[in-house]
Design a protein around this nucleic acid. Sequence first.
DNA 1: TATGAATGAGCCTTCATTCAT
DNA 2: AATGAATGAAGGCTCATTCAT
Lengths: 201, 201, 201, 201
Amino acid sequence: MGRSSYRKSEASRQQVLDAAVVTLAARGLTEASVKDIAATAHMSKGAVHYHFENKEELYERVLEQCWNVIEKRGFAAFDEPGSALDRIHRAILEMWAMRRDAVPEVRVVDEFYVMSRQNPAIRGALAEHMRRTRQHIVNIGFSRLIELGLKPKVSMHFAARLLLATLDGLSIHHSVDPLTPEEEGEVLRTLDAILLAIFEI
Amino acid sequence: MGRSSYRKSEASRQQVLDAAVVTLAARGLTEASVKDIAATAHMSKGAVHYHFENKEELYERVLEQCWNVIEKRGFAAFDEPGSALDRIHRAILEMWAMRRDAVPEVRVVDEFYVMSRQNPAIRGALAEHMRRTRQHIVNIGFSRLIELGLKPKVSMHFAARLLLATLDGLSIHHSVDPLTPEEEGEVLRTLDAILLAIFEI
Amino acid sequence: MGRSSYRKSEASRQQVLDAAVVTLAARGLTEASVKDIAATAHMSKGAVHYHFENKEELYERVLEQCWNVIEKRGFAAFDEPGSALDRIHRAILEMWAMRRDAVPEVRVVDEFYVMSRQNPAIRGALAEHMRRTRQHIVNIGFSRLIELGLKPKVSMHFAARLLLATLDGLSIHHSVDPLTPEEEGEVLRTLDAILLAIFEI
Amino acid sequence: MGRSSYRKSEASRQQVLDAAVVTLAARGLTEASVKDIAATAHMSKGAVHYHFENKEELYERVLEQCWNVIEKRGFAAFDEPGSALDRIHRAILEMWAMRRDAVPEVRVVDEFYVMSRQNPAIRGALAEHMRRTRQHIVNIGFSRLIELGLKPKVSMHFAARLLLATLDGLSIHHSVDPLTPEEEGEVLRTLDAILLAIFEI
DNA sequence: TATGAATGAGCCTTCATTCAT
DNA sequence: AATGAATGAAGGCTCATTCAT
C-alpha cells in the first residue's frame, strides 16, 4: 500500500510534468494556466498543487526535465560509434534537429531563457545547466579534436558557448521566420565550417 | 492651438512609448502591466489607452520603435567612413555592444521573439523586420565583400541570418549566464573568424 | 454675431439630440456611450458635454423630444377630418403603427420605462408625460364618444391608461417575439372591439 | 463527501441565483454589478464566476428561473378547483397580482424584455418562453372556453398574446406611474370585460 | 491521494467627466 | 463654441492559491 500508493503518486507527478511540458510548449510559458496543465493531465487543479507546491516549483521541475531530455538526445547521438569527427558531427546534427523540429522541450527552454530574466531561481538553474553542458561538450567532445592535433583559436569553453548560442539563436529565429528548405540544407555545412574555422588545422 | 494640442499629444504618445520600452525591458513583456507603464510615464492608466487602443497595439508600436533604434545604431556604425572590412567590423561590434550591454530595446525584442509564438500579429511584424534587415545587410554590407573578391560559401541571405541569429543567441545566453570578461574579448575575434570562414578567400 | 452663433449653437444642440435618439435606439440606452452619440452627431465628445451638462440631462431632453414626437404624430392623426369614431380609429392606428414599426422614439421611450425605475428624475418626467397624455386622450378623444351616447364601463382615465398600456405591451412583446402578419391584421380589429367593450352601447 | 460537496455547490449556485434575482430587481439589470450580486449572496466575486462562467450565462439562468417562478404561480392558481371561468379568472388575478406587487421576478423579466433588443441569446430564450406560455394558455385555458360554447373573435394564440401584453404593459406603466387604488379595482373587471369581448357569446 | 469550492488580488478596458486652449 | 487630452472610478474576468473533505 505504502508501496503502491507511492508508485501511483510518483506516476501522477510525472503525468503532471509531462502534461506541463506539452501545455507550456503549446500555449506559452506565461499564457498557460495551471488549469490548462491540469486539463491536459486529465486531473484537477488541486492535484497539480498537491504535487507541486508552487507554479514556481513546477516551472523548476519542468525546466529540469526539459533540459535533461534535450541533453540526453544530444549525447546519445554522440555516443553512437564512429570517428571523433563523425560523432561530433552527429551530435550537432541532433542538437539542430531538435531545434529545427521545435520539439516541446526546446520550445519550453527557449521561453525559460527569457523568463529567467525576471526569475532568479530559474536563472540560477538555467545558468548551472548551461555551464555543465558546456563543460560536458568540452570534456567529451572538443577534447577529442585536440587529441587529433587540432588547435583551438579560442578557449574551448567559449567555443562550446558559441556553438550552443548559435543553435539557440537559429532556433528562435526559425520559430519566428522559418528557414527555407534551402537554408535548412546550409545549416549543418555552415556549422561544420565554423567549427573548423575555430579548430584550425 | 490645434497645433500645440496636437504637438502635446504627439509628445505624450512618445512619452508613453518610451516609458513602455523601459518598463517592458525592466519588468518583462508579460509581467509589466499597463499600470506600470503609465506610472513610468507619469500618467494615468486611462492616458495610455487614450494613445493606444490596446495593449496589443502598444506592443506593436513598441516593437517597431525598438527595432528601429537597434537597426539605426547598427547602420550608423556602418556608415562611418573606412574600408569595407572596417565598416563591417564596426557594425558587428556595434550590434554586439547593444546586446552585451543589454540595452532596453534589445531586451524587449528578445522577449518579442518568444511572445511572437503565441501572437501572429507580432510574429508577422517581427518576421518582416527580420527579412528586411537581412536584406539590408546583404545589400549594403556583404555585397562589398564580394566586390573585394571574396566568395561566399553559403547564400548571403543565410549568412546574414546566421550572423544575426548568432548575435541574438549570444545575447540571450549572456543575459542568463553572463560572459566572463575573457569571453567578451573573444566574441569579436570569433565573429570575424566565422565571417572569414564563410567568405573564404 | 450673437444672433448667428446663437443659431449655430441651437442647431448643434439639436443635432446632438437627434443623434442621441438614433444612437440610443440603435445601441440601447445603457450601451450607448457619449462617444457613440458624439460620433453619430459628427462631433467631439466634448461638444456633447458642452451642450448638456450631464448624460442625465441629455437623457431628460431626449425623453422630452421622443415623447413629443410620438404624441404629436398621434394627435396629428386624430386631427384629420372625419367622424369622431373615425378619428379615434385613425389615432389608434397611428399609435400602433409607430410601435409596430419600432420608430426610434418608441424604442427609446420603451427603454426609459425600464430605466425610470432606477432614476427618479426620469420617472418623474415620464409619469408627468403619461398623465398629461392620458388626460389629453380623455379630453379630446373619449369625451366625443360620450357625447355620442356611449357609456364607459370604467373610468375614462383608466380606459386611456389601458389603451396606452396595451399598445406599449404589444410594442415590447413585438420587439422580442414579432407578431406574424396575421396577428398584425388582428391588432386593430381587437383594439376596436376592446374599445367598444369598454364604451358599451 | 463528493456527495456533500456536490450538494454544497448546488446550494451555493442557487444562492447566487437567488441573490442575482433580488439584486437585479433592486438595482436594475445594467446597473447591478457582479460585485453587488456577490455581496448579496455573501460571497466573493470569484465565487460567482466559479458557478457561472459569464455574466451572460448568469443572465440566462436568471431569466429561466424568473420565468419559471412566474409561470408556476400563474398555473398554480389555475390548477385550483373550480369552474373553467373561475379558474381562468383566478389565474388572471394571480398574473396581475405579481405585476401589481412588482415581485422581483417580474421586475427582472421586464428588464429582460428591453435588454433582449441588444442581446440575441436573451431574445431567443425570451421569445421561446413567451411562445410556450401562450401555447399553454391556449391549450389548458382558452380551450375550455370553447368547450363551453364561446366563440373567439380572434385567433386564440393572438388572444393569449394580447392578454400577456396587456398585463405587461400595465405592469410597466404601473411601475412608472402607479395605479391609484380605484384604478387597481378596475383592472380585473376590465380584463374580464375584454376577455368576454373577445370570446363573445 | 485527490478534488472541488472558494478567495482575492490584479489585469485590461470602458466611460463619463473635467479642463486648458 | 468647440475640441482633444487626460483622469479616475468601476466593471468583468482570470488565475494561483488555500482548504475542507
